[in-house]
Amino acid sequence: MAEVKKVKGWRDVAIGGLVEPGTSEQYNTGSWRTYRPVWHADRCIHCLQCWAFCPDSSIVVKDEKFSGFDYYHCKGCGLCAKMCPVKGEKAITMILETEAAKAEKK
């Protein structure tokens, strides 16, 4: 994937405004988050509902199993937590970013 730089002059960009595929990956939408999804391994049944409903392709799946969040892109919408079918306390819960940051500092 071509690295996109924002400083190119008119001579250096592809004509017609063509764009390379998948380049949005370089854009950080993780900074939009006010809530952060957190995963609870013990409760997860790896049904992949969260993965299917994530609008931002931010649930990482490896070998058909939940394996983490892509926090560079996750916008913290909470759909993954909402769609988690686990009864009782869900395998994904949402916490405030500010709380998460505090916890990280400790």
């Binding site: 924002k6 190119k8 002059g9 008119w10 001579r11 960009v13 004509i15 017609g16 405004g17 063509l18 764009v19 390379e20 595929p21």
Partner: peptide, 21 residues
Amino acid sequence: QHPVTYGPLDLPDWLFEHKRQ
């Protein structure tokens, strides 16, 4: 082999350059 996106949203930081082309 090489898919492409045609017709993006070209905001004030780029449209001028494309028109100059």
